[in-house]
Design a protein around this nucleic acid. Structure first.
Length: 473
RNA sequence: GGUCCCAUCGUCUAGUGGCCUAGGACAUCUGGUUUUCAGCCAGAGAAUCUGGGGUUCGAAUCCCCAUGGGAUCACCA
């Protein structure tokens, strides 16, 4: 069997949800591990909810993160089109086929009737379910439809027990009488999700449907549909949903959910993927850091956990820090240049890398840490006014340093501190703030070497005048 | 409410009947390195394996019930 998997995002958000990346990753890995194909299909059948630009952004993000599709709206493929809105004829044809087979029927009930019926059923604490009024009048309804009445096509849910095997959750049994006569084709001619997935997954020869847990309750409907068409039923694997700390499903109110938000913060795609891989699955050797290639090799659906994991941004950042520290010098240099944009001297950026690479958890940490290199500080976290004499002393000593290197500067300053009988911690704190404006900074001596003698002296001398800022210490 | 799914340190997890007086990682705390922060190194605390019944010589692991959490019940996906 050729393994073909897919993700089927719908462009109802402005970008790909990290949860989709999580299941996408498993789909990708499963296909690649088995030498199969990974497909992206856009499910844009709800016209009212489409977010302009959403699809484009999604496809871009998927590309950026490295989940390369073998077939998609972008790259095409043997089963094109891969966008459901371009496949309307297909769904209609199959919906009609079901009618012909007596497994579906026309329904002309107006939304108002369905609404009030549902409300009443809910009030009676019964399961909301269509009452089949149109089914019982099918001959009459058919005439209305032929005369052009607005209508939908509903599945005639057979009475039976549905048993299926989920690759992650095992055997699941559902009684079909708890299921509604699902609408398959909407009055606007678009299919509902249920018709769309089943038809496309069959036509596109998807072998494994790996998707979020939220689809578990509707899987029996899909199975009924596959059976109604007489099609082979694919394998199912339902993955647990990512959660907020309060265990509700990951939502933008409580967490960034759009994938590009993480990328824009300077989370490396490798780190994001690695972290997501660890949600509901663990490496057989207990490894925490591993590449996509390795993941593909060792991933197995049967090892996926059923418990829903809480998404922990703190651990993600730790992992991102690990990735940053393990990056080759030139690569990190490039990534930082790319991240902060063209307004900064590349030569200088390059020199700052060794000073900051261990201090970065994400690329966005760079500028807050290093901006003092590019611009003299305007504010000081310690009141420089109280250290006038000391600063003068420092300035005088520094101007005698001829070979301006981190080592020599450090020695000169260490000697001065000793001579003044000051504790290193206090002495260097004053100097640090004078140079960087902050009490926390990259290594001082190295920073001073980078800045150069002239600039350092200028900054120290200037603090005599502009000694402002939140005074603490 | 009906249906379905789930349940090990704060969090991610290992664990598939004896190796578990439950292991690792993040986070937390302590100490070391030190001119700040970070990093690195060493160490600590942290789970009566949700509860109760079974099965078994033996259960975190199997079964049942309870409880808790979640998902889902649209002409949304």
């Amino acid at each position: 069997m050729i393994v073909r998997t897919r993700i089927a995002p719908s462009p109802t958000g402005k970008d790909v949800h990290v949860g989709s990346i999580s299941t996408g990753l498993m789909n990708y890995a499963w296909a690649k591990k088995n030498g199969g194909q990974f497909i992206i299909r856009i499910e844009d059948t709800d016209q009212s909810r489409i977010v302009p630009g959403g699809e484009k952004k999604m496809l871009e993000t998927l590309d950026a993160i490295g989940l390369k599709a073998d077939e998609s709206p972008k790259v095409g493929g043997p089963f094109a089109p891969y966008r459901q809105s371009e496949r309307l004829d297909i769904y209609k044809k199959y919906a009609l086929e079901l009618i012909a087979k007596g497994k579906a029927y026309y329904c002309t009930c107006p939304p108002e009737r369905l609404d009030s019926m549902r409300k009443q059923q809910q009030a009676e604490k019964k399961m909301p379910k269509y009452d089949r009024q149109c089914f019982h009048n099918q001959a009459e309804i058919k005439k209305q439809v032929e005369a052009g009445a607005s209508h939908v096509i509903r599945l005639l849910m057979p009475e039976k027990e549905i048993v299926f095997h989920d690759l992650i959750r095992g055997t699941i049994t559902v009684q079909s009488n708890t299921l509604d006569d699902q609408v398959l084709l909407k009055s606007d001619g678009f299919p509902t999700y249920h018709l769309g997935v089943v038809v496309d997954d069959h036509l596109m020869e998807i072998s494994h449907i790996i998707r979020g847990e939220e689809w578990l309750p509707s899987t029996p409907k899909h199975i009924i549909l596959f059976e109604a068409f007489g099609w082979k039923i694919p394998e199912f694997a339902h993955v647990s949903l990512l959660r907020n700390p309060d265990k509700s499903k990951l939502s933008k109110r409580k967490n960034p959910v759009w994938t590009s938000e993480y990328l824009e913060k300077g989370i490396l795609k490798e780190a994001l993927l690695n972290y997501l891989a660890l949600m509901g699955w663990s490496h057989p050797d207990g490894k925490e850091i591993f590449s996509l290639e390795e993941y593909v090799k060792v991933f197995d659906l049967k090892d996926v956990q059923t418990t829903a994991p809480v998404f922990d941004p703190v651990k993600l950042e730790w992992m991102n820090g690990e990735y940053i520290r393990n990056l080759k010098f030139e690569i990190l240099n490039l990534k930082i240049q790319e991240y902060i944009g063209g307004d900064y001297d590349k030569k200088i950026i390059e020199k700052t890398i060794p000073l900051v690479r261990e201090r970065l958890k994400k690329l966005s940490d760079y500028l807050p840490l290093c901006s003092f290199i590019f611009h003299a500080p305007a504010t000081f976290e310690v009141d420089m006014g109280t250290y006038k004499d000391l600063l003068k002393n420092i300035s005088d000593t520094l101007s005698t340093v001829s070979d301006w290197k981190a080592l020599t500067v450090g020695e000169a300053m260490g000697d001065l501190a000793k001579k003044l009988e000051m504790k290193n911690s206090e002495f260097f704190m004053v100097l640090r703030v004078a140079i960087t404006g902050k009490k926390i900074s990259p290594p001082l001596n190295e920073s001073m070497e980078l800045l150069g003698k002239e600039e350092c002296l200028r900054r120290i001398n200037n603090t005599f005048l502009a000694s402002v800022g939140p005074s603490q210490l």
